[in-house]
């Protein structure tokens, strides 16, 4: 179980990863060395994995095709889905991979510069894996919300500038 300081750190950094250990110390009332040690522990345990920025690529010129692929597979004896999952997540086109309950087994999120490249990934790399028994590819058309953040929303502060 993680202690209160660690939960504070995760909550603060999940909102803004740029906040320094010094600032976290002030915001939580803990000693800065204690905060640094806790961050170190969280990194070592791979709870804090990476500190990326959230980017809305649709607002840039970058050409990119994204798709969600539902994959049905034959699980392997002893290793279940992990072996085939590992075969799939090694591909650089794969951005996320989840084991799912329901009508299919793995959800693969893929990204490629062009439609052609993405199609070729599905037909020549993914579908040809031995234990894959079927795929269904859905192209993403627009991102409305990602990681808890509404991309298309209007975040203007509508409050009166001064109120009692």
């Amino acid at each position: 179980m993680y202690n209160t300081l660690e939960m504070h750190i995760l909550e603060i950094l999940s909102d803004d990863a740029r906040i320094s250990a010094e600032q976290i110390a002030v915001m939580t009332g803990y000693d800065v060395d204690e905060v640094r040690r806790a961050i170190g522990r969280l990194e070592k345990d791979r709870v804090l994995v990476k500190y990326p920025a959230m980017i809305n690529w649709e607002r840039t010129d970058k050409e990119m095709v994204q798709a969600v692929i539902e994959v049905r597979v034959q699980p392997q004896r002893d290793r279940g889905f992990d072996a085939i999952a590992s075969r799939i997540y090694q591909f650089e086109e794969v951005t996320s991979l989840y084991l799912m309950s329901g009508a299919y087994d793995l959800m693969v999120m893929v990204e490629a510069p062009t439609l052609k490249q993405l199609a070729s990934f599905v037909s020549s790399k993914l579908s040809t894996l031995e234990s894959v028994t079927g795929t269904a590819t859905h192209f993403m058309l627009k991102t409305y919300k990602y990681g808890g953040v509404i991309f298309e929303g209007d975040d203007t502060d509508r409050r009166l500038a001064v109120s009692p």
Binding site: D157, R159, L160, A161, V162, S163, P164
Partner: peptide
């Protein structure tokens, strides 16, 4: 009239100002 009101009128002319004068949740 409320002293707040007077101040509100000045701030209203400065849309880019950062307000720490708001008495409601963000």
């Amino acid at each position: 009239p409320s002293g707040i009101r007077k101040f509100f009128d000045i701030v209203a002319e400065m849309p880019e100002a950062i307000s720490l004068g708001v008495g409601e949740p963000d």
